[in-house]
Design a protein around this nucleic acid. Structure first.
Lengths: 153, 153
DNA sequence: TTGCGTGCAAAGGTTTTGCATGGCA
DNA sequence: TGCCATGCAAAACCTTTGCACGCAA
């Protein structure tokens, strides 16, 4: 059975994941950053172990806008009903949103649109506060949306 | 300048896109289905033309959960402020959502979370009504969410 | 005739797989 | 010792790019 043995690679990878809970990363990030701290781990091992953890639910796996697979370790996976994720298309950061409006939206979608939203699979894409500040007024990705939305950014 | 000539490939591809507006497809879908109807077109041409159309806004491009790039032709791209997309993780269908609650959510996100949502990049993932009916009570992808949300599915 | 568009093939990048070796229990 | 885990290399995929030829204007 898979995931049976307690190996050095697993221990180190798991420690790595825990340190950066709530942060997103690619397989390359893992390989190189672990390498930097002197922990040798094969690329295939990273792929295989992350895949296993994703099946078990302690790691979330999704596609970035660029088409690269990103992973994220989650401590508590139980509150899926109000827990969404936002990703900044500029800096790539993944953020959590845990608020009532999301629940309201879910309920609205299922009631009025017949659509059962899955917060685990859904990622809200946009530009985060930090990047908006850094980029000044001209908000790249949301530029044309900006006008129509009447937001006072 | 790109997109200047009116070639057979462009005409046929554009016709293909218009026929399946509101539907999603991959580059392979295009190549093989056009091939089936006797329209020869090179893979690179499809990539290049879809890329061009995506820049111009008449085609939307995004990553599927499986990591394959999907495209979708959109007739009217002007109402981006309240226009979102939902994708069914079962049947793969892409649907449009054009309602006030989405606008409310956008405004909430930017006001209270500092996040400027981009409706063009964001895809709400879940299970559509048709698939929920077909699948009975046990809703595959939203199963554990189902409980927490107190939805009366 | 000019130069953009096309398609093949090759290259590039990411992920998966086969297989021999290593290491946990 | 038995068997899972690992890592290398190769393969499998998807996408992009270079280049010569075709074709629209």
């Amino acid at each position: 059975m898979r995931g049976e043995y307690n190996t050095r690679q697993k221990r180190e990878l798991l420690a790595f994941l825990r340190e950066r809970s709530m942060q997103h990363f690619s397989v390359d990030d893992v390989v190189f950053e672990m390498q930097d701290r002197g922990e040798k781990i094969g690329r295939s091992t990273v792929y295989r172990y992350l895949e296993l953890l994703a099946e078990q639910g302690s790691v979330r796996k999704y596609q970035s806008v660029q088409g690269i697979t990103q992973y994220q370790h989650v401590e508590d996976d139980s509150r899926c009903d109000s827990h969404f994720h936002m990703m900044c298309s500029r800096c790539g950061n993944l953020m959590h949103v845990d608020c009532d409006l999301m629940r309201t939206m879910s309920e609205h979608l299922v009631k009025d649109h017949g659509f059962l939203l899955d917060p685990r699979e859904t990622i809200l894409v946009g530009v985060c506060q930090k990047c908006r500040m850094a980029g000044g007024e001209a908000v790249e990705h949301g530029a044309d949306c900006h006008e129509g939305c009447h937001h006072s950014v």
